[in-house]
Design a protein around this nucleic acid. Structure first.
Ligand SMILES: [Mn+2]
Ligand SMILES: [Mn+2]
Ligand SMILES: [Zn+2]
Ligand SMILES: [Zn+2]
Lengths: 150, 150
DNA sequence: TGTCCAAATGCGAAATATTCTCATTCTTAT
DNA sequence: ATAAGAATGAGAATATTTCGCATTTGGACA
């Protein structure tokens, strides 16, 4: 295990983020650490690459936009984030916290709620079997008007 | 009813496509008629704007790409076509034949199969209610490997 | 702890997909 | 047949994402 000496007599493990990156096979570079910490700290769970770029800029952590794109894609491959294609076409990312879920999005204000429905999950496997497919993934997004907007 | 005289003594109604466009509140222009006829005649149901443009070019019906985009968007608003956002980001269109369905897409070869599952449809309404949303739409796409590809 | 090298970054250019602008052409009501 | 407004085509513009390459950095190892 990697150990760093920060204060005399105290041994401190590397940060959680450093470990998470290394476990994912990614070097713990400053931009990657900043992006991961940002995703863990923000209260907005579903963000475009541009959103991440601008929010980080605002909080003083500038990382090049191309790097944001590269790192989010790497995080996706590593299973650290999930990418969605809501209406509008462009990608939206969210920190992967282990529990799969789908989304219901307000077409007026853009609010995103998450849900998980076991029945729907099961039916999808039945459908895939019926069509001779091995499921790799799925995306279900319900669009509607939220209670605030109607 | 609009009547056109094509041959002496024979009365011919306007084409179905002309009527469909007019019912949709769209002028029956040549590009729109060509695009609609193309969508009705092709055996590939799910096409990008570029696909439509190139296929029509190949069959000698050139329509400007900007017009393809404009017309497909108008057709979508009129309910004549449906737009999807499968993985990859860009829009895919299909002629609307009245029966709602969702899709299962092969991530290897791109094959698209259609399905309809009443149980899933019902659960979505339960979920929307639970979250205080009025459903306007939804998109479910299952991704997997088709029987040909595994 | 210092050195070295592959890997990562930042920047601007390029690629993609889509929309816009505007001069010209077409549709349709009269 | 005409005229007015709507639609089209061509290319410019925009938005999103990726790429190329010179420079920097992380971390393995001396
Ligand atoms: Mn989510
Ligand atoms: Mn379909
Ligand atoms: Zn809302
Ligand atoms: Zn396949």
């Amino acid at each position: 295990m990697t150990i760093k000496h920060y204060l005399p007599g105290i041994m401190m493990k590397d940060s959680n983020e450093t470990n998470d990156l290394q476990k994912a096979g990614l070097k713990a570079t400053l931009p990657r650490l900043k992006i991961l910490k940002f995703l863990e700290s923000t209260d907005i769970r579903h963000l475009s690459a541009e959103d991440v770029y601008k929010s980080m800029l605002d909080s003083g952590d500038e990382v090049g936009l191309a790097t944001i794109y590269r790192v989010l894609t790497q995080f996706e491959s590593a299973g650290l984030v999930t990418r969605h294609h809501f209406e509008g076409g462009h990608s939206v990312f969210e920190l992967n916290e282990g529990k799969h879920h789908d989304h219901i999005v307000c077409v007026k204000c853009g609010k995103v709620e998450e849900f998980y429905d076991e029945t729907i999950e099961e039916r999808q496997h039945v459908i895939a079997d019926k069509n001779g497919f091995n499921i790799t993934d799925h995306a279900l997004t319900i669009y509607g008007i939220c209670s605030d907007c109607k």
